[in-house]
């Protein structure tokens, strides 16, 4: 798997992401500066978390206009894989590569804590090393993670099976208390119709090492590495 990590000014999770990708695939990802436009030879483009452009205007709005985004759009159109985590998810919805928007957390509080996610389907390249219905733990750290879309879009996402992860209680049940940022239908991550673009708010890349308290995030990267093994 040849992965590239896009680096915008203000992004700060690119090194965690690089560690997670290299652990899973044995190959160090390429760092791609936001002014670059040549993504040739990359199977997977990752937009990591952080605060691109200081979250000016709206989270992800400025990054969505960067030169590299046109190349990412072309990569996605070719059927390439794209993963956006946290600010990366915000950038994907601002670019309209994924539908909806991420609003300020309903509590207005920045949430920095672990959450539980339910894997809604295991037949995608991102979730192949999980079981359907499996509950995993993942850290989250965001102020604007409240997923919003109109009812028609939400119904379409559910109907086409494009909800990848939901915020749940540790026993896997969907509860209002487990949905701390107030996301519509407890949605934590969504897929594109071809299931090759995944955006999610929590950080699986920050739970891939037992030293950090768990490895629940590792199967996401291992599944990708296995699916995209060259």
């Amino acid at each position: 798997m040849r992965a590239g990590i896009v680096v915008f000014p203000g992004i700060n999770r690119e090194r965690d992401m690089a560690i997670a990708l290299e652990r899973a695939s044995g190959r160090a990802p390429r760092m791609v500066w936001h002014r670059e436009t040549d993504l040739q030879g990359l199977d997977l483009i990752v937009i990591p978390g952080g605060f691109s452009y200081g979250d000016y205007l709206r989270c992800g709005a400025m990054a969505a206009q960067s030169p590299v985004m046109e190349s990412i759009r072309a990569h996605a159109t070719r059927g390439g894989h794209v993963l956006g985590v946290c600010n990366g998810f915000q950038i994907l919805v601002e670019s309209q590569l994924l539908p909806g928007a991420l609003l300020r957390n309903a509590s207005l509080r920045f949430l920095s804590m672990d959450c539980h996610l339910r894997v809604e389907r295991a037949d995608t390249d991102f979730t192949a090393h999980y079981q359907r219905g499996q509950v995993i733990r993942a850290p989250m750290a965001h102020g604007d993670g409240n997923y919003f879309a109109d009812d028609a879009t939400l119904d379409r996402l559910e109907g086409e099976g494009l909800v990848a992860f939901r915020y749940v209680a540790p026993d896997g049940s969907v509860t209002a208390a487990a949905n701390r940022n107030g996301s519509a239908r407890s949605i934590a991550g969504i897929l594109s119709p071809n299931r090759r673009i995944l955006g999610l708010m929590p950080h699986p890349e920050d739970l891939v090492d037992p030293l950090l308290g768990g490895t629940d995030g590792a199967p996401l990267f291992e599944g990708l590495a296995a699916s995209l093994a060259a």
């Binding site: 709005a61 919805v93 539908p99 928007a101 919003f148």
Partner: peptide, 8 residues
């Protein structure tokens, strides 16, 4: 194009 996100 930029100032508003017409989704929301």
């Amino acid at each position: 194009k930029l100032l508003a996100n017409t989704v929301i």
